[in-house]
Amino acid sequence: MTHISMTVDGTRYEDEVEPRLLLIHYLRDHLGLTGTPVGCDTSNCGACTVELDGDSVKSCNVLAVQADGGEVTTVQGLASDGAWTPLQTAFHEQHALQCGYCTPGMIMAARDLLGENPDPTPEEIRHGLEGNLCRCTGYQNIVRAVLAAAAEERRRRAPAPRPAGAGRPDGRPEGAPATAGQEART
């Protein structure tokens, strides 16, 4: 057994685990955080995507011992005080899911994408989500949802609008680069 400690969705955990334990099984079976599903046995589907130390990872392809000392965010840690993030809201409003199995991973991968590229094109979204498979939607509404969330996040980050008539129609202040606010995340 190996001693590990990690922070998951803001809570710190200490445990003794077998080295062969996968991070996804640690989250689901040891911590009871079943919001993140397992969709495959081959590291292909992306359903299990979580954030580890700021980067998206497939949690079925990481050992829990490799995440020792790390900080993990799952889809369950996104909402604060019950308020969804723009991505979660956009997936709901744009019908970006049917069965919903891929959704936790899609949202985590999309979140990583928007962290690197706050104003992606549809093509860039498709590339950014290439590690996440959806058997239901045909991806069209997923791309729409990510575009909508990106717009909403940019709107929230922009300084308070000036009096009517000022600024650009997209809500961004004049001259603001499309890639402003890299540090802020969903």
Partner: peptide
Amino acid sequence: VADPAVRHR
């Protein structure tokens, strides 16, 4: 190579 999550590791 692969996808963004795999490329992170």
